[in-house]
């Protein structure tokens, strides 16, 4: 059987809210090492990879590897019924066709359980090779969200160029053009405002803002987000989930003909 108890239950809610517009149905894979999900959007343009390590749960038991197919829309509906401070426990039998979510209030005066029907989902699992990225910029998640949102009102795509001077986000469209540059700032007073740039070689890639904007729905999960880029390879947009794992998104750059 599978059983996992998460004290920070709202973390699960944030994860599902971050991916449900990109991916409709997905398989959650459980093993003794943790709870993971890998899924592409319908058009196979972007990929979501979630990893929650078993040691990040208060209690984690998985007797046999299992894959649980869920409608993320329905899962979001159920998780919406959990209180913000509730402890969430997931339970599933090895051969069952449902997963149960139990919500406990912190004061232990309210307990509820919701059963979600599992579904059979054919999904293609992709191997993501370890990559030596040319540049990795780590910036406040809210800043990344703002850049993507602001540039979306100018154009459909963004050119992200990383040089030793900083990382420039440029967009152009009918309205005109926009450039936003973030510079390394590892001495900001507040840790949550720090920006760091790890540059091995300059790189410039063009991406569809629609997807980068969608990834920004993970903003509530982490103070910072990292963008890792290498020439002609998908960007990795990485939100670290403290003490537990990560939620990563991948998007291939647009290629000049």
């Amino acid at each position: 059987m599978f059983e996992a108890r998460l004290v920070q239950g709202n973390l699960l809610k944030k994860v599902v809210d971050a991916v449900k517009d990109l991916v409709t149905d997905a398989n959650f894979d459980c093993s003794s090492s943790g709870f993971t999900l890998q899924a592409m959007d319908n058009s196979h343009v972007s990929l979501v990879s979630l990893s929650l390590r078993s040691d990040g749960f208060e209690h984690f038991r998985c007797d046999r590897n299992m894959s649980m197919g869920m409608s993320l829309g329905n899962l979001a509906k159920i998780l919406k019924c959990a209180g913000n401070d509730d402890i969430v426990t997931m339970k599933a039998a090895d051969d069952g066709d449902t997963v149960t979510f139990m919500f406990e209030s912190p004061k232990e005066d309210r307990v509820s359980d919701f059963e979600l029907k599992l579904m059979d989902i054919d999904s293609e699992h992709l191997g993501i090779p370890d990559t030596d990225y040319a540049a990795t910029v780590t910036l406040p998640a809210a800043e990344y969200q703002r850049i993507c949102r602001d540039l979306s009102s100018i154009g459909d795509t963004v050119v992200i160029s990383a040089t030793k001077d900083g990382v420039k986000f440029s967009s152009s469209g009918d309205v005109g053009t926009a450039n936003i540059t973030v510079r390394q700032n590892t001495t900001a007073d507040k840790k949550e405002e720090q920006v760091s740039i790890d540059l091995k070689e300059p790189v410039a890639l063009t991406f569809a803002l629609r997807y980068l904007n969608s990834f920004a729905k993970a903003t509530p999960l982490a103070s910072h987000v990292s963008l890792s880029m290498a020439r002609d390879l998908p960007v990795m947009v990485d939100y670290q989930i403290s003490d537990m794992g990560h939620l990563r998104f991948y998007l291939a750059p647009k290629i000049e003909d």
């Binding site: 592409m40 058009s43 196979h44 343009v45 972007s46 990929l47 293609e124 699992h125 992709l126 191997g127 993501i128 090779p129 459909d156 795509t157 063009t206 569809a208 390879l233 998908p234 991948y250 998007l251 291939a252 750059p253 647009k254 290629i255 000049e256 003909d257």
Partner: peptide, 14 residues
């Protein structure tokens, strides 16, 4: 408009 490449051409199928 530049074409949007799909991801499976970058990653291997497992």
């Amino acid at each position: 408009i530049l074409p949007q490449p799909r991801l499976p051409s970058y990653f291997t199928s497992e």
